[in-house]
Design a protein around this nucleic acid. Structure first.
Lengths: 136, 136
DNA sequence: GAAAACTCTATTAAATTAGTAGGGTAATAA
DNA sequence: TTATTACCCTACTAATTTAATAGAGTTTTC
């Protein structure tokens, strides 16, 4: 299940991407328009800023804005930052790999075999979508 | 993230699928070989029996066995029973559809658009894999 | 210098997960 | 028929994660 954090983060990014110019948008505006708890959104935007997706400007007339253009923002990167691993089990994760403590051999594990395919198919989707692709 | 329930359920099904004949296999044997808590496995096998994947036999020499041959068991069905919805958000779920309370319009929702593709790609994988395909 | 807006820390309520405990019931072989 | 084996069921719980909420603090800009 997709976490609210990811959902809200994606919506906020999409909202910023539809802005005509690069003028900062206030948290309160995004929160209201996208029906998101302002405080929760605050922490999400903060993490998107720390990971290089957003810039922020303080003071009057401040807010958040995209650091890159929407077509340069890959869903792969966004999902990894917001949701974490794309794989459904750590033993098939590219960026968050871990061995399973219960599994004696990955190569003969049926779960591994299936989840590898699921990961690849999900990666395909994310790699083929930038922020520009998903805004209406 | 894949739940342990699903993981264990898949492993148990795979274990049963590799049995030479259709002789019932005891819970204790599967639990031991696959490193699964016996009691937890018990509840998982029970749900697989109630949903028509497994048959069981009581008494001495009893246990669980597959009701169909491995190539007739689709991962789509298994995943839906063990893990629940394949979609990451209810608004793109085929079997567990729900509207999002926060979203005014699905058709213009970026999250919806992206998750629809993810669901379809996952479904593709599950539809193309039977139990037979994932056993080594 | 005051208002606007971002930043940070801490706390919490609810939900889910992954078990654990323990007894009860049914079927089979001997 | 009787002992054993193995399934069946309910209830409880510890740990973790999620989704906030509260409130104070800091920085910037007009």
């Amino acid at each position: 299940m997709l976490s609210k954090k990811t959902k809200y983060g994606l919506k906020a990014l999409a909202y910023l991407a539809t802005q005509p110019d690069k003028k900062p948008v206030q948290i309160s505006e995004i929160a209201e328009k996208e029906n998101i708890s302002q405080k929760f959104l605050e922490s999400i935007l903060l993490s998107l800023r720390k990971t290089g997706f957003l810039g922020s400007k303080k003071g009057k007339g401040g807010g958040y804005y995209l650091l890159k253009s929407p077509e340069e923002i890959s869903m792969t990167d966004v999902m990894r930052v917001l949701e974490g691993p794309i794989a459904m089990v750590p033993c098939v994760s590219l960026n968050f790999y871990e061995t399973c403590d219960d599994c004696p051999d990955e190569n003969t594990c049926s779960v591994h075999k299936l989840m590898l395919q699921v990961r690849d198919s999900a990666l395909d989707v994310y790699r083929n979508n930038t922020l520009k692709d998903i805004i209406s």
